[in-house]
Computed example of a mutant assay.
Amino acid sequence: MNKNLLVFWLSASFVFAFDRVTKVWAERTLTLGEKVPGIDGWYEWSLFYNPGAAGGIFSGHLEFLITVSALAVIALVGFMVKGRHDRNLWLQIGLGLMLGGALGNLFDRVFYQHVIDFINPIGESHIFNIADKGIHWGLYLCLLGLWLSRRKLNKAAQASAPEQQRLEQ
């Protein structure tokens, strides 16, 4: 394993493990459909089995969702391993969070035929889990990492422009 990708693998492992632990907790502690006070004023806990994707879209299409999830996992790993991203810390963390989230929901779909959701924001109609938040925040960190990389490349190009002009003369 490339030691420079350690942050990527650690991020993915953390989200996957935290997601699994919290889903086991939710299933052992909560009753399906019951709302339990969680983080005061922010969230309540409510166990829900989601047969689809975000908000229940594609319900009844388990094979499709498993295929899409598996392709996302392959793409994320391939992008990191084959790409030259081993020095972009924000991108590594972001892609790792997304990988851990994709693996967490893929695990549920393969072994339970639904995704276990249990975090219910007060006043909202959607329920989610740690894997969903890993994907969500991972995307933001990837965008930050790509933006910072672009800035770094632009600065490097500007710094080398005078040298290039001198060589051309």
Rank of each mutant, 00 (worst) to 15 (best):
T22D: 02
T22F: 12
T22Q: 09
T22V: 09
T22H: 03
K23N: 03
V24I: 15
V24S: 05
V24L: 14
V24A: 10
W25E: 02
W25K: 09
W25F: 14
A26T: 01
E27P: 02
E27N: 12
E27Y: 03
E27L: 13
R28L: 15
R28K: 15
T29L: 13
T29P: 06
T29S: 15
L30A: 01
L30I: 05
L30Y: 03
T31V: 15
L32G: 06
L32R: 07
G33E: 05
G33D: 02
G33C: 11
G33Q: 00
G33M: 14
E34V: 15
E34T: 02
K35W: 00
K35P: 00
V36D: 04
P37K: 12
P37G: 10
G38E: 00
G38I: 05
G38M: 10
I39E: 05
D40K: 14
D40Q: 11
D40V: 08
G41V: 06
G41P: 02
W42A: 15
Y43D: 04
E44T: 10
W45T: 04
W45H: 09
W45N: 03
W45K: 05
L47K: 04
L47P: 00
L47F: 02
L47I: 07
Y49A: 10
Y49R: 15
Y49L: 12
N50G: 01
N50P: 04
N50F: 07
N50H: 05
P51R: 11
P51A: 10
P51D: 11
G52C: 08
G52K: 05
A53Y: 04
A54T: 04
A54C: 08
A54D: 01
A54K: 04
G55Y: 10
G55S: 09
G55R: 03
G56C: 08
I57K: 04
I57D: 07
S59E: 07
S59P: 05
S59I: 11
G60R: 00
G60T: 01
G60M: 07
G60E: 06
H61N: 08
H61K: 14
L62F: 05
L62T: 06
E63Y: 11
E63I: 15
F64S: 10
F64C: 12
F64V: 14
L65R: 01
L65A: 06
L65K: 02
I66V: 13
I66D: 02
I66T: 03
T67L: 15
V68L: 12
V68M: 12
S69F: 03
S69Y: 07
S69V: 05
S69Q: 03
A70F: 08
A70D: 00
A70L: 13
L71A: 15
A72C: 07
A72T: 08
I74D: 09
I74L: 15
I74V: 15
I74A: 14
A75M: 12
A75S: 03
L76G: 02
L76A: 07
V77L: 12
V77T: 03
V77C: 12
V77H: 08
V77D: 01
G78K: 10
F79A: 11
F79D: 04
F79G: 14
M80I: 14
K82T: 06
K82H: 09
G83L: 07
G83D: 06
G83A: 10
R84D: 09
H85Q: 11
H85Y: 12
H85V: 09
H85A: 08
D86T: 08
D86Y: 13
D86L: 06
D86N: 14
